[in-house]
Design a binder for these strands. Structure first.
Lengths: 109, 109
DNA sequence: CAGCTATATAGCTAAATGGTTATATTCTGT
DNA sequence: ACAGAATATAACCATTTAGCTATATAGCTG
């Protein structure tokens, strides 16, 4: 599962790709539609889409002439699950937080 | 906030760095302690720590001869908040999920 | 202050990344 | 079958990254 996390986090580290995901949250979109907001060449967008697809964050369809993309929620859930393991560190409702904060003194911001 | 997300996701895309965070979830640790589980040189670990610190995921302290690291939960919360925006896509309790799944037909796995 | 310990920095290299332009592929419509 | 539209792939380039070894810095201890 480690390699899967590598690919997902790496895919998400690019703002263009996160913007593409945000767009796909509104429903499926063609490559041309996804490329529209950016000042990037079409191949650059195709590359980003390939990265997202290989990370499992999106899927490709086929519709007449175009190959629309849709969001693949499972990969995002993988990230949510990973980060949830650290939730106790910022969620005040956990008793351990105070302990933790007390240890934190003397660490430069 | 976009650059912040870039740095955090990018930092998390490396398994060594995620393992370092996991170790720090058990409390502060020195560089030597953090390096121990890995077959990497000490400078390599220092580099990883720098990446984590610049992403705001950890902080450095000073204790006698050593510079122990601690977890910085805020950056992880940033990720949790970001991914939470997509929660409706995998959480069955949201009505829209069915709509979404119906659209998904015909997309290759 | 000399030497040891802990860690950081410098300088190097190989591989990966993100962009480009040019070209290939696939489907639609005439 | 052909022309055009939508998208993918190839080949290239510059930058970043992750590792290494060698060396520098900071603090402790005799």
């Amino acid at each position: 599962m480690d390699e899967r996390l590598d690919a997902i986090f790496s895919a998400l580290s690019d703002p263009t790709r996160r913007a593409i995901l945000a767009r796909l949250a509104n429903g499926k979109a063609t490559v041309a539609e996804l490329a529209d907001p950016f000042e990037l060449s079409q191949p650059a967008i195709s590359k980003h889409l390939k990265v997202l697809e290989q990370a499992g964050l999106i899927r490709s369809g086929r519709e007449a002439n175009s190959r629309p993309r849709i969001l693949e929620p499972a990969a995002l859930k993988t990230i949510a699950d990973w980060v949830a393991d650290y939730r106790r560190f910022w969620d005040e409702s956990f008793d351990r937080l105070d302990d933790y904060l007390s240890k934190v003194q003397g660490y430069e911001k």
